[in-house]
């Protein structure tokens, strides 16, 4: 048992070191937001400073922060909901299909996620102009949904495939409808998988900045786009960047921490 305690101690020390490696940059960014501009960079680096809220005042001067936050939330939730609505049924259908082509279609969906944005963004831009959606949240939701719904389809395909069919078959013989077998029998068992997929979708669209940079306007742009703009050319505005990063990372970090249990659980079931 002694060897075992020692081993656990070694494991934990290693983990603490790794955690430190991860927390130092994050803490640096957080602390930057509270530093006065002349103290953020001194040479050699200084480790003490007198905290200020100047940087937060500044970002509220430069941006409508609440509008940015709203845009980020609307776009990532919109993308996620739409992707799940399209992707979950499609994943189920492919998993339950007996056709040889089902797997081909599944891989086709996976391939769609690899499409680099530069190949599609400009044609899509012109398409959105023609249907009058340019500059709206919809433009971003629509294009991000293609990538994400493709990914959800593929994820859910592997979940449903791993699920034994017996329960659905039993339900069907008991007179359950096809829809019922899907909606009431199969779906509840893959909730962790759906949550994991949703997390991936939210993270992806929350952090994406190239697409919204191109497709939104001043009223609809999200935090990720403003982050880069807060980084002016004539000034290193690390302080304002740090302040804005509070708004762009805290919600998603909280959510990840909150749903972390589902995340691991979801992935666990998905891969077998």
């Amino acid at each position: 048992m002694k060897a075992r305690t020692r081993q656990i101690a070694i494991e934990r020390t290693t983990l603490v070191v790794i955690l430190a490696l991860y927390m130092i940059p994050v803490l640096w960014l957080v602390s930057t937001a509270y530093k006065p501009p002349r103290e953020i960079f001194s040479s050699p680096p200084s480790f003490t400073f007198s905290p200020t809220l100047f940087n937060f005042e500044r970002i509220f001067q430069l941006f409508d922060v609440w509008q940015l936050l709203k845009s980020s939330i609307v776009m990532s939730l919109g993308t996620t909901v739409l992707s799940l609505l399209l992707g979950v049924p499609a994943g189920y259908a492919l998993a339950r299909s007996k056709s040889r082509y089902a797997i081909v279609v599944a891989y086709f969906f996976l391939a769609i996620r690899t499409v680099p944005i530069i190949a599609t963004l400009i044609p899509f831009y012109l398409m959105m102009r023609d249907i009058g959606l340019l500059g709206t949240w919809w433009a971003v939701i629509l294009i991000n949904t293609t990538l994400n719904c493709a990914f959800v389809t593929w994820m859910m395909f592997s979940y449903f495939r791993a699920l034994p069919r017996d329960m659905e078959e039993a339900a069907l013989t008991d007179g359950c409808t096809l829809w019922g077998a899907f909606y009431r029998v199969a779906l509840p068992t893959v909730v962790p998988g759906i949550i994991a997929s949703a997390l991936f979708c939210i993270m992806f669209s929350w952090n994406d900045f190239l697409t919204p940079m191109f497709l939104t306007n001043s009223d609809t742009k999200p935090l990720s786009v403003a982050l880069l703009a807060s980084f002016g050319t004539k000034d290193i505005t690390w302080g304002t960047l740090g302040a804005l990063a509070h708004f762009s990372t805290v919600p998603i970090v909280l959510m990840a921490l909150f749903l972390n249990r589902y995340f691991v659980q979801g992935l666990t079931k998905g891969v077998h």
Binding site: Y125, L126, M213, F214, S218, K221, A229, F231, G232, T233
Partner: peptide, 18 residues
């Protein structure tokens, strides 16, 4: 709408071209 140099160039040109 306050933009960084790169975004400004890209967005305004896209606006003009489109």
């Amino acid at each position: 709408d306050i933009l960084d140099y790169g975004s400004l160039l890209t967005k305004t040109q896209a606006d003009f071209i489109g």
